[in-house]
Amino acid sequence: MLSTVLMVCLILLSLALLGSIYRLIKGPSTADRVIALDTIGITMIALVAVLSMYLKTSAFLEVILLIGILTFIGTVAFAKFIERGVVLDRKRDH
């Protein structure tokens, strides 16, 4: 019973992932694509969580935190690149 529910959840999350990928390919501006990438990361967190419940293992729980941290850092880097053109400042000018 539970495995059926989890499989349905996996399919629905895959559909959400496909929707985000459509926005990633189609998005007219760069900001749309960055937000689509952020959404893909969060959907991947949910996928890993449901998959680790489906496989009855706790070995993937670090992966969840890891994807969360990497998605955050990647989004911040892209946002700073869009806004200022540089990712890493050498020295702050103010």
């Binding site: 890891l66 990497l70 955050f72 850092i73 020295k91």
Partner: peptide
Amino acid sequence: HHPGGGFIGGLMTAAAFVLIGLAFDIE
């Protein structure tokens, strides 16, 4: 005994310092 180790731990620590570099600067 669990997933992890020196490589991924070092990468995460480096990611923390990269985040400081993103929000502030390299100095």
